[in-house]
Write a protein that binds this DNA or RNA. Structure first.
Length: 388
RNA sequence: GGGGAAGUCGCAUAGUGGCAAUUGCAACAGACUGUAAAUCUGUCCUCUUCGGAGUUCAGUGGUUCGAGUCCACUCUUCCCCA
């Protein structure tokens, strides 16, 4: 947290691929930003309102070693609001985080707050979930908000339709997302960063579970010649196999020399399968939310720490972990804390899961570099999702 | 010693003639994928082929077609006065 941002004046958002897996589409790279370099594949903890829930920036940086985190345009716009963020000098300074930040555009809230919004060509009108007030998000406005937040990577405004949407709706929705994408790119080109560091804009590929729509969308996104691309609208109700198939379809079209970000995914197994199919960046609420609800991810599978069987397990949560919390506390203690609704339990569980997720992608990267990613993945993937 | 109140599935509660019986907590499971989530769901007397079946409301006896509910006595607990 004390290092100065490294400026790369020559090539903004340079993405270098250091290793490509000989047996799959997996690759290990580095994405350079003005707030530091991001090794890929990478997992990005979700910090919706300027906080990765229950985790201090200190642990995020030193124990978990998160290289980049997420913020959310919709949530930050409603609270604390743009006035505060501008006066603070952007989100990095406001929250005391000097590494990169990616902001989601609010497109996911178009999906998750479906009862409180109305979609039109111009944009999307929301009723605030906090006070019921009305707000309109347009593609241009969403870029402006992300300029004010000062995120290193901004996301285009999209519509994220449900996984089981019928073809006609999926097509109309995708076409709207494309028009919004065009407008975001226009606004991006005609505006400047506010705080002295550069910002990228990632377009988002949509198209639901329909391969022809996904191809069309990937081609539209690729035509923007962006610093990176996102795959959205997956893990929203469709079967996992369909998700993997859509990733393959899209990554066959997206430029290989730019990072690909699979939005909102997922389980440890999902992440390894997507890495194998050429995805570089991930985010998901699972490690933090499920952690708060008593679920731990480990190399041996998932643990429900609330279960009685952990009552007297006095083993450290993970003696080999980079996180102090993992090394210092036992399953039995965490069981007690979570059962007692102690806030420390939420913190330890969240730190544990995020440390595991970062360890997962770090280990995957190492195996890509060593050239045995697919056999390693094959030997481990089933174990990750079984119950301990 | 006299007077009063009360005993319901771990705990606490609802119930005043049709009840396997309310609600909360606890307990035990499950869910969670670009965070309206420190949230939500289920089970929670016994057995079950999940359709049901069998035993319950301190105890015993009674009234009634029918009793957790009404009556009598017994046991236990609490409060007030001596």
């Amino acid at each position: 947290m004390t290092s100065e941002p490294t400026l790369h004046n020559d090539q903004p958002f340079r993405f270098t691929i250091e290793h490509s897996d000989p047996n799959s589409s997996a690759r290990a790279g580095v994405l350079h930003t003005d707030h530091g370099a991001i090794p890929t594949p990478i997992f990005m903890p979700v910090g919706t309102v300027g906080s990765v829930k229950a985790v201090h920036q200190h642990e995020l940086c030193n124990d978990i070693d998160a290289k980049i985190i997420l913020g959310n345009t919709y949530h930050l716009y409603l609270r604390p609001g743009m006035g505060t963020l501008k006066a603070a000098g952007g989100l990095h300074r406001f929250m005391g985080w000097e590494r990169p930040i990616l902001t989601d555009s609010g497109g996911f809230q178009v999906f998750s707050l479906a009862q409180n919004r109305k979609i039109k060509e111009e944009g999307c009108t929301f009723k605030s979930h906090i006070d019921g007030s009305r707000h309109t998000f347009t593609p241009e406005g969403v870029v402006d908000i992300q300029r004010t937040i000062g995120s290193d990577i901004m996301m285009a405004f999209d519509e994220c339709p449900p996984g089981e949407s019928p073809y006609n709706y999926a097509k109309k929705s995708m076409e709207l997302t494309h028009r919004w994408m065009d407008r975001c790119v226009e606004r991006y080109k005609e505006t400047e960063p506010l705080y002295g560091h550069r910002q990228a804009l990632f377009p988002i590929v949509q198209g639901c579970k329909y391969a022809d729509l996904r191809r069309m969308s990937a081609e539209h996104a690729a035509s923007k010649d962006a610093y990176g691309y996102a795959i959205g609208g997956l893990a929203v109700g469709e079967p996992t196999e369909v998700m993997y198939e859509m990733i393959e379809v899209v990554n066959a079209i997206l430029p290989t020399d730019r990072p690909r970000y699979l939005m909102g995914v997922g389980t440890p197994a999902n992440i390894l399968e997507a890495i194998e199919r050429g995805v570089d960046m991930f985010d998901c609420v699972m490690p933090t939310r499920n952690g708060r609800n008593g679920m731990l991810f480990t190399w041996n599978g998932t643990v429900n720490i609330k279960n009685k069987k952990w009552e007297t397990c006095f083993e450290p949560i993970n003696p080999d972990s980079s996180a102090l919390a993992d090394r210092s506390y036992t399953y039995a203690y965490l069981h007690h804390l979570i059962k007692s609704e102690e806030l420390l339990g939420l913190q330890i569980a969240s730190i544990h899961n995020l440390t595991f997720y970062l360890d997962l992608v770090r280990t995957a990267r190492q195996h890509i570099a060593e050239g045995d990613f697919t056999s390693w993945k094959g030997s481990i993937v089933d174990r990750l999702m079984r119950r301990v």
